[in-house]
Simulated assay, not measured.
Amino acid sequence: MNTGKRTYANPCGVARGLDVIGERWALLVVRDLLLGPKRFNDLLAGLPGVSPNVLSQRLRELVDQGVVRKRDLGAPTRVRLYELSEWGAELEPLLLELGRWGSRAPAEPQGLLGIDSLILGVKAGFDPARSVALEGVYELDIDDDTYVAKVADGRIEVARVAAAGPVDAAFAADLATMRAVCEGVITVAEAVESGAARSTGTTDAQQRLADLLWRSAAAAPSRLP
Results as ranks from 00 to 15, higher is better:
F40L: 09
E97S: 04
L33G: 00
T203L: 15
A105M: 01
K38D: 05
S85P: 03
V181E: 05
R31Y: 09
P52W: 12
A169C: 06
V54M: 11
G121W: 04
A89M: 00
N10R: 13
V192H: 03
R31F: 05
E23M: 14
S199P: 05
E97L: 06
L175T: 14
R223D: 15
E23Y: 10
A197D: 00
N10K: 12
L224R: 02
G49Y: 09
V151K: 04
A197T: 02
G165F: 08
R179Q: 06
N2Y: 02
G36V: 11
A210S: 06
S51R: 07
V192K: 02
L91Q: 07
S56M: 10
P37G: 05
D64H: 05
K38W: 02
A196E: 07
L175R: 15
I21D: 01
A219I: 13
I156T: 04
P37L: 08
L134T: 03
T7K: 03
P225A: 03
Y8C: 01
E61A: 06
P109R: 05
R130W: 02
L44D: 10
T3S: 14
L224E: 04
D32L: 15
E183R: 12
R69L: 11
E97A: 12
W87L: 15
A89P: 00
V29W: 06
G22R: 00
V122F: 04
A105F: 02
A180P: 08
L134K: 05
E90H: 09
E190R: 14
D168Y: 06
G66N: 03
R130S: 07
L18M: 15
P93I: 01
Q65L: 04
D168K: 08
R100H: 13
E190T: 11
L34D: 09
P76V: 14
E190D: 08
